[in-house]
Simulated scan of single mutants.
Amino acid sequence: MGRFVFIVVSIIVLVLGGIFFYKYYFVFGQGVKAGELNYFVNKGFVFKTYEGKLIQSGYRGKVVGTIQSNEFQFSVANERVAQQLMTASGKVVELHYKEYLGAIPWRGYSPFIVDSVISIKDPNRQELP
């Protein structure tokens, strides 16, 4: 009887572990987003995480002749990437991200995790001829 209980408990633990891995560590998708970095902060009560918001503009609105903007909220787990973004508020950035099926507290509040910065451009800076 003890061996049967051990096998059942082992199977349950493996299945729950597989579900947890699939939900929180399986990369569902990845891509690149570009826009103006609205804010980037380090926050949290127990787990300090880096959170940011990117404003993407230029999409057509639902009403003819209007423009609507979208917000892309993301988290950053890499300290080097976070330091790059800390100085880029108000600039146009291109970010590579991975999308997970769920968020976990020590990785951030968002299921979108930025893992690298492709480019940072200052839209207010004038190019000299």
Results as ranks from 00 to 15, higher is better:
residue 92 V to N: 12
residue 79 E to F: 06
residue 1 M to L: 05
residue 30 Q to C: 04
residue 122 D to Y: 06
residue 34 A to M: 12
residue 1 M to R: 04
residue 74 F to G: 00
residue 117 V to G: 02
residue 106 W to N: 13
residue 36 E to N: 10
residue 103 A to S: 15
residue 122 D to C: 10
residue 14 L to D: 03
residue 70 N to Q: 06
residue 50 Y to M: 04
residue 108 G to E: 10
residue 12 I to M: 14
residue 66 T to F: 01
residue 26 F to D: 10
residue 73 Q to N: 11
residue 22 Y to M: 02
residue 27 V to A: 01
residue 22 Y to L: 10
residue 103 A to N: 09
residue 75 S to Q: 05
residue 104 I to H: 05
residue 82 A to L: 00
residue 58 G to D: 13
residue 121 K to H: 10
residue 42 N to P: 03
residue 64 V to L: 11
residue 83 Q to W: 06
residue 62 K to C: 07
residue 106 W to F: 15
residue 1 M to A: 12
residue 4 F to H: 12
residue 32 V to C: 01
residue 9 V to M: 12
residue 14 L to P: 08
residue 67 I to W: 10
residue 37 L to I: 00
residue 51 E to F: 00
residue 8 V to P: 00
residue 15 V to Y: 08
residue 112 F to H: 14
residue 39 Y to D: 12
residue 127 E to F: 09
residue 97 Y to L: 09
residue 18 G to N: 09
residue 31 G to Q: 03
residue 109 Y to G: 15
residue 129 P to R: 12
residue 105 P to H: 05
residue 68 Q to S: 11
residue 12 I to T: 13
residue 90 G to T: 02
residue 64 V to N: 09
residue 61 G to V: 06
residue 54 L to Q: 08
residue 71 E to Q: 04
residue 86 M to A: 06
residue 70 N to E: 11
residue 35 G to V: 01
residue 9 V to T: 13
residue 82 A to S: 08
residue 21 F to K: 07
residue 122 D to W: 03
residue 84 Q to V: 08
residue 59 Y to D: 08
residue 55 I to L: 14
residue 116 S to F: 04
residue 119 S to W: 02
residue 102 G to C: 03
residue 103 A to K: 08
residue 44 G to Y: 03
residue 5 V to K: 07
residue 40 F to W: 05
residue 68 Q to T: 15
residue 97 Y to F: 15
residue 18 G to P: 07
residue 58 G to N: 13
residue 11 I to Y: 04
residue 122 D to K: 02
residue 60 R to W: 08
residue 46 V to G: 05
residue 45 F to D: 14
residue 78 N to Q: 09
residue 115 D to I: 10
residue 5 V to W: 10
residue 47 F to Y: 15
